[in-house]
Simulated assay, not measured.
Amino acid sequence: MGWLRTNLLWISLVGLLVSGGLLLVVVGFLGLVVYSALGTGTPIVGELLDVAAPVLAVTSVLLVATVLSGVGFVWALLRRASVPRSSRLAALADRIEREYPPLRPFGLSDALAPPKPSAEEQSANALAELKRQYVDGELSEREFERKVDRLVANESVDEARAERERRAVLDDRS
């Protein structure tokens, strides 16, 4: 499934060009049959009925293939499009998905949500917030130092836990 998803754009583009080109050839053939029937004076209905059975089946298959590959091409293009991410857009999409449940499987609110900050970014943001509170006078020097120590201790605990998990995975592979 991963290979198909990564190559969907090119597969659907080739399918669209091939099926669309063949559909144009078949429709052109039907136009040529009608034109020749008109030029010779023979009844058009008789000529079309002679050609209808095989051409109608081929035309319907090509039409379905063209539509499906066109939808796949547009879907692949939209998936590759650069979409702005913000919490406001995600909230709006979430509200729309709640109002119209058939839209939930598309995951629009997840696609528009800003990426979750990494652990490093979270700790940097927490430290910046502590600094701001200390500068604004909301925290005393003692409270600031205590909270910074707690933040650093939590980081070291998380790092130790991650190292233990890495070692366990490596031991399981051995």
Rank of each mutant, 00 (worst) to 15 (best):
V14C: 11
V14N: 01
V14S: 09
V14F: 12
G15A: 09
L16Q: 05
V18W: 02
S19M: 03
S19G: 05
G20S: 11
G21L: 02
G21T: 06
G21Q: 06
L22T: 03
L22I: 04
L23R: 07
L24V: 10
V26S: 02
V26N: 03
V26I: 09
G28E: 04
G28V: 03
G28N: 02
F29N: 09
F29P: 00
F29E: 11
F29C: 07
L30W: 10
L30T: 06
G31H: 05
G31K: 05
V33R: 04
V33S: 02
V33C: 00
V33I: 12
V33T: 04
Y35M: 10
Y35K: 10
S36W: 04
A37E: 03
A37L: 02
L38M: 13
L38D: 11
G39I: 00
T40H: 12
G41L: 04
G41P: 03
T42E: 14
T42Q: 12
T42C: 00
T42H: 08
P43T: 14
I44F: 11
I44K: 06
I44E: 13
I44P: 00
I44Y: 10
I44C: 05
V45T: 12
V45S: 14
V45L: 14
G46A: 10
E47R: 15
L48F: 08
L48C: 04
L48T: 05
D50K: 15
D50Q: 15
D50A: 14
V51P: 00
V51C: 01
V51L: 09
A52C: 02
A52L: 14
A52N: 09
A52I: 10
A52S: 12
A53E: 11
A53T: 13
A53P: 00
P54G: 10
V55P: 05
V55G: 11
L56S: 15
L56Q: 12
A57G: 13
A57H: 08
V58Q: 06
T59Q: 15
T59A: 15
S60Y: 08
V61L: 15
L62E: 06
L63D: 05
L63I: 00
V64H: 08
A65W: 04
T66F: 10
V67C: 03
V67Q: 01
V67L: 14
L68T: 07
L68V: 14
S69C: 11
S69Y: 00
G70P: 07
G70K: 03
G70V: 05
G70I: 02
G70A: 12
G70W: 04
G70R: 02
V71R: 06
G72C: 06
F73D: 02
F73Y: 12
V74P: 04
V74R: 13
W75D: 15
W75G: 10
A76G: 09
L77P: 03
L77V: 13
L78N: 07
L78T: 08
R80F: 07
A81T: 08
A81V: 09
S82G: 12
S82K: 09
V83N: 01
V83R: 13
V83G: 00
P84K: 09
S87I: 06
S87H: 03
R88G: 13
L89R: 11
L89C: 05
L89K: 01
A90L: 02
A90N: 01
A91N: 03
L92A: 15
L92K: 11
L92S: 09
L92Y: 04
A93H: 07
A93T: 05
R95I: 00
I96N: 08
I96T: 14
E97M: 11
E97P: 08
E97Y: 07
R98V: 10
E99V: 05
E99W: 12
Y100Q: 14
